[in-house]
């Protein structure tokens, strides 16, 4: 009987200890440029070598993270999620957790702000923007309209645009004074935005309200907030990239990538992935994640040809980059 108890104790102790120790994930070499996709459906992060365009590792995580930020140290990746209590920090090089910030649940978006060298988290539970320094200390909270989602930084004007998903409002925050400057009305279910600082234009996409499918890009004056015009880009334009007088618009409803000039004229378009939400510029290409096709595509921005397609974890929802010069 004593013998049995001892075995039982060892087993329980083993389970207990192993569950306490931090899991170690595959190390990511520090000298290469990488992209990391946060995959919602299988709770993983896939790492892709941008030079060779190969997938180098998958991290199977234990929490439902929905997004990530890579810090300027180029080694720490912060993972957050609306259902996760903390924002967790991992070292890419060691593949181990290195800390966590107590953010509470509700974080749906995060960005490293060049202007203030802070992390801005979008909190949908508190309905505000929360600014953290790189040590995890929260500096300030600035309240916004209901359900903030997309944030856009203007480095030139040192302001932050915050799109409210439900409330049909855009909030403008002064990053230096750390206060709400103004807010103006926009279309419902807005998501995704691009700022043309030369022309003071704010291009905003969206999903559409109710069963209505959003087909247009809504262009507003970035200073006055006045609506200027619509650019058709069906359906559901939700992501924007601007480069060399061209604007790339990703419409997830039709799985389409549009190439426009700054006047809103469609120059070219293509179908890419399935239900893509996210796209980023790598040094040469556009990288697009297909949420339903579970892959990323490298697209040549000049001729809109797919250069390479790489399968990643299930449901890639966000891409973050670490680029070595």
């Amino acid at each position: 009987m004593h013998y049995l108890k001892r075995i039982l104790f060892i087993i329980i102790a083993g389970v207990f200890l192993s569950s306490c120790s931090n899991p170690r994930y595959p190390s990511i070499p520090e000298d290469i440029s990488i992209a990391a996709t946060v995959n919602i459906k299988d709770m993983s992060v896939s790492f892709i070598n941008l030079d060779s365009m190969e997938k180098i590792a998958d991290w199977k995580l234990e929490k439902p993270y929905t997004g990530a930020v890579i810090l300027p140290d180029n080694d720490t990746i912060i993972l957050y999620g609306k259902q996760v209590e903390t924002a967790d920090l991992y070292s890419l090089k060691s593949g181990q957790a290195v800390g966590s910030w107590n953010t509470g649940k509700g974080i749906v978006n995060g960005k490293y702000l060049q202007t203030t060298s802070q992390i801005a988290f979008v909190d949908q539970n508190l309905n505000n923007i929360r600014f953290f320094d790189l040590n995890g200390e929260e500096a300030i909270q600035i309240s916004t309209e209901l359900n903030p989602l997309t944030i856009l930084e203007s480095e030139k004007s040192k302001i932050l645009y915050v799109l409210s998903f439900n409330k049909e409002k855009l909030t403008v925050i002064d990053l230096i004074k750390k206060e709400k400057m103004t807010s103006f009305p926009i279309h419902p279910s807005a998501a995704g935005a691009w700022l043309n600082e030369d022309k003071n234009e704010l291009w905003i996409g969206g999903h559409g309200a109710g069963e209505e499918v959003e087909t247009d890009i809504h262009v507003y004056d970035s200073v006055t907030g006045d609506f200027k015009y619509n650019i058709p880009a069906p359906s559901m334009p939700v992501n924007f990239l601007g480069s060399n007088k061209n604007v790339f618009v990703l419409s997830h409803g039709s799985s389409k990538l549009y190439k426009l000039n700054e006047d809103g004229v469609v120059l070219d378009s293509m179908i890419v992935g399935a239900n893509p939400f996210e796209m980023v510029f790598t040094n040469r290409n556009i990288m697009i994640a297909g949420y339903d096709s579970n892959d990323v595509h490298f697209v040549d921005p000049d001729n809109l040809n797919i250069i390479k397609t790489i399968p990643v974890g299930k449901g890639p929802f966000q891409i973050v980059l670490r680029e070595r010069k």
């Binding site: 069963e211 209505e212 359906s235 559901m236 997830h252 409803g253 039709s254 239900n275």
Partner: peptide, 8 residues
């Protein structure tokens, strides 16, 4: 309609 198909 992608909205009916839970695309978002």
């Amino acid at each position: 309609n992608p909205r009916e198909l839970s695309a978002c």
